[in-house]
Design a binder for these strands. Structure first.
Length: 747
DNA sequence: TATCCTCGAGTTCC
DNA sequence: CTCGAGGATA
């Protein structure tokens, strides 16, 4: 950092020397930041240097250098890119790894469409480019926006950078008014090698692989740097669009080519799985000589009408699949096995590996899942790795599943060290020493220590401050862990007592390196801000088993307020007890039945579970389990958590410290169904269940999964069974799909 | 009862 | 990203 002598005291000679020094420092820092995504100096130092430079230039204008860092546009490590919400979500694809997966894919589609095994059904097959997806929006033929995929819903605006890519036209003739073109940005092998050579010449760090180079180049804040990088683009899909491009996938791709986009020359139309696999083999053969990285082949149903009928699952289209090439493999030694304890007490074994490069990344850890996985079995007891177990000291083969998560694929038995023993999975928690038990039929072994286990406590706290939970600025996983070790917080409620407990300014905090008055005040302000918390975030943050983001939102929507939820859970307590007893009775019945060689008689056992139960508990239980997506396991987890004294006290302390915002049903103009509880059953022909549910909720209705006395309306499609009968018994109004559509359209 | 689908939980490296 | 498991449905 610069000597911060007063600028006024500088001689002209000293000023000139310092300006030169600052110019070099800042240029280098820029390069390190942008080129390598690896800042060499901190943001604060960077800002200070820049300010000092400006100060000296203001005092000695004549000395301002031609390459003055103050003139470099967009060079400052700024706030990043603006966000873009995709009009049509950018989905990922399902994966296939062997020929069987492809024939199953075809069979699944035929079944869904009601096609026989010999009905004609064409697919396109094209190489899957290993780059990053980009969405280009054209309005009236002009490129107006380019966005990265991001999480699929929201990406980053990289328009300025996209404009520098020669494969991407900035204007189109004869295009629909609105046209969103999607494709892959990539870097060729030749360009990648040349870029890395240049990097090395300049003394910079080379990129690990073309994909990283392309990603790093597209995400430059200074688009002039992107311009200097030789990026390419293949178009293969489209999003928001005002007029169809064609009536088939292949026709649409041809249309994109005519509009001036690069499309992959290895795209081919296939008439079924055999041809698809043949094309896959052909592409795999050419893989090394293509000149760019690909990681598989993508198959899509060619007919766009059929694509529409097939539609989407939550994150992937039904009409496409990615057939991946086998992952890159590497051999290394297993140096040890550590056990991590998660928030739910799950003991997860992690492999400590001798560092090895796999797919351009150095890997030193790999997940081992659970004790069966180490022993060479999957959850159903079937053999994996031909039944070979994993022992410390083994020579093991590592790959990255989905090119991300390191896993162990194989063990070389010929190199097993003499005397290597099978791994003994711990039966007690390595952190607190409590028993670690594995429930019947469960894959994981869990620490029973609960709140007394430090590992669980810390993980729970980390979960509590995570992004989907309280998301307190300045209080991340690291800080929370440190505060826990310091004894400042033991449970979530303590976070909200920090300031009063330790005094404003919190001397202990300020004494720590990296913390000053300002950061302490900021932290307290951020904590205060989150004292107001939406109900669904609170429910999620409690970290109850089986209750994640979706279930938390469903519960919040159903009950509206914290007291309503807590009351229902408390009231249902005896019902949950009956349910759990019935579970145990069912397990006993199954066992006896098997021993006696007869079929288990489950129904009488289950029917007996409610005998002698009070009505209030039963109806609270039905209320909970009637919520779409909430079943017995989730309800039981809620009740059990609330019934445990220590845990409940901790929750109560937290709730007392908060101002919980009720979950308001979205403000809706009075629609014919607002406030009504609706159940869908049978086959819906004009919409998917998910659509029907979303639409109904948008109109202010509650959608439930089962018919009860609280149901206002049953929408029954063809094939409705027991629910329609129950509705008739209860006198619940029942209409068909057309009736429902007419009803909601009258709104 | 079997099957499909979605959600939850746990994981690595940058 | 993947796996296991819960929930809904045929």
């Amino acid at each position: 950092m610069s000597k911060s002598g007063a600028v006024n005291a500088l001689s002209e000679e000293e000023a000139r020397a310092e300006l030169a020094r600052l110019a070099e420092l800042l240029t280098q820092a820029n390069a390190a930041y942008h080129r390598d995504d690896a800042p060499e100096i901190s943001d604060a130092d960077y800002d200070a240097a820049k300010a000092r430079n400006a100060e000296i230039e203001a005092r000695f204008p004549a000395l301002k250098r031609a390459d003055s860092p103050s003139d470099v546009v967009g060079a400052a490590p700024a706030d990043g890119f603006s966000k873009v919400t995709h009009v049509v979500r950018m989905l990922s694809l399902g994966n296939a790894f062997d020929p069987d997966d492809i024939t199953e894919f075809d069979a699944r589609i035929r079944k869904y469409l009601g096609f026989g095994p010999s009905a004609p059904l064409a697919y396109t097959a094209e190489p899957k480019i290993d780059g990053l997806s980009l969405s280009l929006r054209y309005e009236k033929g002009s490129l107006v926006q380019a966005a990265t995929r991001g999480d699929g819903s929201v990406g980053e605006n990289v328009t300025a950078n996209a404009r520098t890519i020669t494969d991407i036209p900035t204007t189109l003739t004869d295009a629909p008014d609105v046209l969103e073109v999607r494709g892959e940005v990539y870097m060729s092998h030749a360009d990648f090698d040349a870029l890395n050579a240049r990097q090395l010449e300049k003394g910079g760090k080379p990129f690990a692989n073309p994909r990283n180079a392309a990603a790093g180049s597209l995400r430059q804040l200074d688009s002039e740097i992107t311009r200097a990088r030789p990026l390419r683009f293949f178009a293969y899909a489209w999003g928001d669009i005002s007029a169809p491009l064609a009536d088939s996938q292949s026709g649409a791709i041809n249309k994109l080519a005519r509009l001036g986009f690069q499309t992959n020359p290895l795209t081919e139309l296939c008439d079924g799985p055999q041809q698809m696999l043949k094309h896959y083999a052909k592409i795999e053969q050419q893989r090394a000589s293509l000149g760019y990285d690909i990681d598989g082949v993508v198959y899509k149903v060619d007919d766009l009408g059929l694509q529409q009928r097939l539609g989407f699952r939550s994150t992937t289209p039904r009409w496409a699949i990615a057939h991946k090439f086998p992952a890159e493999l590497a051999w290394t030694t297993l140096e040890g096995i550590d056990i991590q304890v998660g928030r739910t007490g799950a003991l997860s074994p992690v492999a400590r590996l001798h560092p090895v490069t796999v797919g351009g990344v150095v890997v030193s850890n790999a997940t081992l899942h659970n004790e069966d996985y180490i022993a060479g079995r999957d959850s159903k007891g079937a053999q994996i790795r031909d039944g070979k177990d994993i022992r410390v000291g083994d020579w093991v083969q590592v790959y990255r599943a989905g090119d991300v998560i390191p896993k162990i694929a194989d063990v070389d038995m010929s190199k097993r060290p003499v005397g290597a023993q099978p791994y003994e999975f711990p039966l007690t928690c390595p952190d607190c020493g409590s028993d670690a038990i594995r429930e019947e039929g469960d894959a994981v072994r869990r620490c029973t220590g609960g709140l007394i286990c430090p590992a669980q406590a810390v993980e729970k706290l980390k979960y509590f401050v995570s992004r989907a939970a309280f998301d307190i600025e300045g209080l991340g996983a690291k800080q929370v862990e440190q505060f826990y070790l310091d004894g400042w917080i033991a449970e979530p409620a303590d976070i909200f007592a920090l300031q009063t407990r330790y005094g404003r300014g919190m001397q202990q905090l300020k004494n720590r390196e990296g913390w000053g008055d300002k950061s302490a005040d900021n932290l307290f302000a951020a904590i205060e801000e989150k004292r107001n918390i939406p109900l669904k975030r609170l429910i999620f943050s409690l970290g109850i088993r089986h209750v994640g983001e979706v279930a938390a939102a469903d519960l919040a929507r159903h009950f509206g307020t914290w007291p309503a939820l807590a009351d229902a859970i408390d009231t249902a307590r005896s019902a949950a007890a009956c349910h759990l007893q019935a579970d145990a009775a069912e397990a006993r019945e199954r066992e006896t039945a098997q021993r006696e060689g007869r079929r288990a008689r489950i129904k009488p056992v289950r029917d007996a579970q409610w005998v002698g139960l009070d009505q209030a508990a039963k109806s609270a239980w039905d209320d909970l389990t009637g919520i779409d997506g909430i079943g017995a396991a989730v309800a039981a987890a809620l009740v059990t958590t609330f019934a445990q004294e220590a845990e409940r006290a901790s929750i109560d302390r937290l709730v007392d410290a908060l101002n919980i915002e009720p979950d308001a049903a979205p403000a809706q103009a009075a629609s014919p169904v607002s406030g009504k509880t609706v159940v869908f059953t049978g086959t819906l022909e004009k919409m998917t269940r998910a659509e029907a549910k979303a639409r109904a909720e948008a109109l202010g209705a509650k959608v439930s999964g089962s018919v009860s006395a609280k149901t206002d309306l049953l929408v029954a499609g063809p094939g409705a069974g027991s629910k329609a009968k129950k509705a008739a018994d209860l006198g619940v109004e029942t209409i068909d799909e057309d009736g429902w559509l007419a009803l909601i359209e009258s709104a």
